[in-house]
Write a protein that binds this DNA or RNA. Structure first.
Length: 438
DNA sequence: TCTGGGGTCCTAGGACCC
DNA sequence: TCTGGGGTCCTAGGACCC
């Protein structure tokens, strides 16, 4: 049997110690695993529709490319500095994420997958004297087994582990990509240098508010009067302040929670004017949202459809946004039924003569199917709907997404988003596997 | 020409009930 | 008819996260 990393280092008594591990420039790193010649070069990954920069390699950061900037604004820099640009390839990133999480999970008794590129780990059972070498070993094995470089921050609370991770990442050379804020003296020194806007959970608005009260650093925030903090920053702010003091207010969430809301929306690759095209797009959004709904064995009782033209103020066309919602007569996860209602909502808000930029659907009031009281008369129908959806989901799983779908989804999909520099799905499509040449 | 998409949690305020 | 307080539930909006 394979010896797990945990048994190598042995187990000890229980105390809480959180680690936050995350992939460096995750999307870029995923691309570079399959294009190793790009390591050390400026690389960026774009958002859907090739709009904004959503991931940057260190070299791209050093060129001063900010996070979230629209590509067209830095086109010259990209050309001049030979920045390598990728469209986003989410199937690839999701698969690489799964691999990274699998490796990391073997280093901890418990894990919370927090986002596609980061997870919290419980390291309370690792002997303190071994911790540093343990973390370095984690990094080494993740890199060896997945090709993804990670940084790891450690602390007695999740907020401190997050902060430690940030410190590790900001000075990878000095820290070797790992940092520990468990020691109170080190913590005080670091938090006094840690700007309040970098605290996990303090966003732009609250950072501004802090500064208006002369709270500049994480240390200031941690030591402000706790009742005053609650009054001004709600219970959320109070928990953050306590966690900065080393008092843990939230543990690991190890179970994957069912979604309470499911959204599907996307910008169009070109302006869309016709109701027909909006209907196609809405049908596609319903299809993918309903797939997610069925995957967690839930139904929705509340449906929203919205459409918008370009909201940016420099857009040459007039602005129009509208949304319509309805409570469904019975909870449902049946794609054709949901499409039917979505079309009703869409016709309520559609106005001709606008250049639409984006459409989306939202499911709210989501419940587990097993909890739902079936309407006595519709029980037979519901069973039939269930069966037909099961067949569709099964085929799409075996033969690829979109093999079977409603005719309302359209064939041509001219409105589809741009994705001009997409890398192949190296790990999730047989046809796009890398071929090794001898 | 060109500016992402998908979530969570908290609070305030209104409606309604006793 | 008017007065009062308190509780719950729902929704919209804001703030945050990645």
């Amino acid at each position: 049997m394979k010896k797990s990393p945990m048994s190598t280092f042995g187990l000890s008594h229980s105390r809480h110690l959180f680690a936050l591990a995350d992939g460096n420039s995750f999307f870029c790193s995923c691309e570079m695993v399959f294009r190793p010649e790009l390591i050390g070069k400026p690389v960026v990954v774009l958002s859907n529709n090739d709009g904004c920069i959503v991931s940057r390699s260190d070299e791209a950061k050093q060129l001063g490319i900010p996070m979230g900037v629209p590509l067209f604004q830095i086109k010259e820099l990209v050309a001049q500095k030979k920045v390598h640009v990728f469209s986003s390839n989410f199937p690839l990133y999701a698969d690489m994420s799964k691999r990274m999480m699998k490796v990391l999970s073997e280093f901890a008794s418990e894990m919370e997958v927090y986002s596609v590129d980061e997870c919290f780990l419980e390291l309370g059972d690792i002997p303190i004297k071994d911790l540093n070498s343990y973390l370095l070993e984690m990094k080494r094995v993740v890199l060896r087994d997945t090709g993804i470089p990670v940084c790891i921050g450690v602390g007695p609370t999740k907020v401190l582990a997050k902060a430690a991770n940030k410190i590790a990442k900001q000075s990878k050379k000095e820290t070797q990509g790992i940092y520990n804020l468990s020691d109170p003296a080190i913590r005080e020194a670091q938090l006094k240098k840690f700007s309040v806007e970098n605290i996990w959970g303090i966003g732009r608005q609250n950072a501004k508010k802090c500064k208006s009260f002369k709270i500049e650093t994480a240390w200031d925030f941690a030591n402000a009067n706790i009742d005053w903090v609650q009054k001004n920053f709600t219970i959320v702010g109070k928990k953050i302040a306590l966690e900065l003091q080393g008092i843990s207010c939230s543990g690991l969430q190890t179970e994957i929670q069912d979604k309470k809301q499911i959204i599907s929306s996307r910008s169009f690759g070109r302006p869309v004017l016709l109701l027909e095209e909006l209907r196609e797009s809405v049908a596609n959004h319903i299809t993918s949202a309903a797939e997610k709904l069925r995957k967690q064995k839930s139904i929705t009782r509340h449906l929203t459809v919205w459409i918008t033209t370009n909201p940016l103020s420099n857009s040459p066309t007039p602005f129009y946004y509208n949304a319509a919602s309805m409570e469904l007569p019975t909870g449902s996860a049946h794609t054709p039924k949901l499409i039917h209602f979505a079309f009703q909502l869409l016709s309520q808000i559609y106005r001709g003569g606008y250049e639409y930029k984006k459409a989306g659907v939202i499911f709210n009031d989501i419940h587990s199917k097993s909890q739902v009281q079936l309407n006595f008369f519709s029980e037979a129908d519901t069973q039939q709907e269930d069966d037909s959806m099961k067949t569709v989901d099964g085929i799409n799983q075996d033969y690829g997404k979109g093999t079977v779908k409603s005719a309302a989804c359209g064939i041509n999909q001219f409105w589809k988003m741009r994705s001009e520099q997409k890398s192949p799905c190296y790990t999730t499509r047989w046809s796009e596997l890398l071929v090794v040449k001898n």
